[in-house]
C-alpha cells in the first residue's frame, strides 16, 4: 500500500543528516512567521525559498505539483473573493479611501455585472495563497527528510515523554492494518447488497458511517491483545531505556538552531516595532 510510510526523499543531503530537533524548530518558527506576516512579497519569497529547499533536498517535483494542483481551485476562489469583495478590510488595513481598480466586469453581465477587481484585494489574496503554501510545504521539508526512528529519538531528546513518542510510532505501524480493514469492511457492506450510489444523502451517511463501527470495535479488541504483547516485551512507558538510534546535535544542527531562533526574534521585532511584514500593495 502506497501510504504505508512517510514519503521519504531518496537523496542524501546535509538536510537528511540533520537531527530532528533543528527541523522541529524550523517548522515551528516558519509556521509562526508565515502566520504573522501579511506582506505578499515577503510571503512569496518565503514560499519560494521553501519550495526551492524542498527540491534541493529531494522532495519530488511531482509531489509539489500535486499540492499545487489540488490547492489551485482554492487559490482561484481566494483571489476572486479577495479581489472583488475585500474592499472595507483592505481599506482599513492600508488606511486609504479608494482602491485601485485592476479591471471591471461590464454592467450588463448577468448577476456579476459591475464587479470590480482591485489591485489591493488581489495582492491580499496573493499574500494568503503564499501563506498557506508556506504552512503546507514546510511539513514535507521537515518530515519527508527524516526517518521515523530519528523522529522518535528526537522527540524523546526534546523532552517529549517516550510514551507519547511510542504512541506516535506505533500508530504509524498499525494504521496500514486498519486502512486495509476499512477496505474489507466496505467490501463486506457492498456484498450485503448496499449500493451507496442509489441512496439519498442521509441514508448514505447512516449506512456509510456503519463502516467505522466494526473498525473501531475490532481495533479495541486488538488493543487488549496489543497491551499483552507490550507487557511481555517489557514495555513500561518509562523514558529511561536505551535507544539503538542515536540523536546527536552536531555543529551544523547548532548553527541551524541558532539561525532559526535569531530569525524568529528578528522578524517579530521588525514586525511589531517597524511594521516590516505588514500588508502593503506593490501596485
Amino acid at each position: 500500500m502506497a501510504m504505508m510510510k512517510f514519503q521519504t526523499v531518496e537523496r542524501d543531503s546535509f538536510f537528511t543528516k540533520l537531527d530532528f530537533r533543528p527541523k522541529l524548530l524550523m517548522m515551528t518558527v516558519i509556521s509562526i512567521v508565515a502566520f504573522v506576516w501579511e506582506n505578499p512579497i515577503m510571503e512569496a519569497t518565503l514560499a519560494i525559498l521553501i519550495i526551492v529547499s524542498c527540491l534541493l533536498v529531494g522532495v519530488r517535483w511531482g509531489y509539489i505539483r500535486t499540492v499545487l494542483l489540488i490547492m489551485s481551485p482554492f487559490y482561484v476562489i481566494l483571489l476572486l473573493t479577495h479581489g472583488f469583495f475585500n474592499v472595507d478590510q483592505v481599506k482599513t488595513v492600508l488606511g486609504i479611501q479608494q482602491l485601485k481598480p485592476m479591471f471591471a466586469i461590464p454592467k450588463n453581465w448577468w448577476l456579476i455585472g459591475g464587479g470590480t477587481m482591485s489591485w489591493e484585494g488581489f495582492f491580499y489574496g496573493i499574500n494568503i495563497i503564499f501563506k498557506t503554501l508556506c504552512l503546507t510545504l514546510i511539513i514535507p521539508l521537515g518530515i519527508f527528510t527524516t526517518e521515523v526512528d530519528n523522529m522518535i529519538v528526537g522527540m524523546v531528546r526534546s523532552r517529549i515523554p517516550y510514551k507519547i513518542a511510542f504512541i506516535f510510532s506505533s500508530t504509524l505501524r498499525f494504521f496500514p492494518l486498519l486502512f486495509q480493514e476499512i477496505q474489507n469492511i466496505i467490501e463486506a457492506q457492498r456484498l450485503r447488497g448496499l449500493a451507496m450510489e442509489k441512496m439519498g444523502p442521509v441514508k448514505r451517511v447512516r449506512v456509510y458511517s456503519k463502516v467505522a463501527i466494526p473498525l473501531i470495535l475490532g481495533a479495541m479488541v486488538k488493543s487488549q491483545q496489543l497491551e499483552v504483547v507490550l507487557q511481555s516485551k517489557a514495555f513500561s512507558g518509562d523514558s529511561d531505556r536505551t535507544y539503538i538510534h542515536q540523536s546527536i546535535l552536531r555543529w551544523l544542527d547548532w548553527v541551524l538552531i541558532v539561525f532559526f531562533l535569531v530569525f524568529f526574534v528578528v522578524s517579530l521585532v521588525l514586525y511589531i516595532w517597524f511594521g516590516i511584514g505588514r500588508f502593503f500593495s506593490p501596485v
Binding site: S170, R173, K222, V229, K233, R241, Y243, I244
Partner: peptide, 30 residues
C-alpha cells in the same frame, strides 16, 4: 512470548527496531 496474530505482535516500524524493542526496554547497551 510469541502470539497467534502476526499483525498485532509486531509493534515497530522496521525489523531491526522490532528486535531491539524489548532489549531497549530492558536497558541493554546499544
Amino acid at each position: 512470548e510469541v502470539f497467534e496474530d502476526p499483525e498485532t505482535q509486531l509493534v515497530a516500524t522496521s525489523v531491526q527496531n522490532e528486535i531491539a524493542f524489548a532489549m531497549e526496554n530492558l536497558k541493554f547497551h546499544r
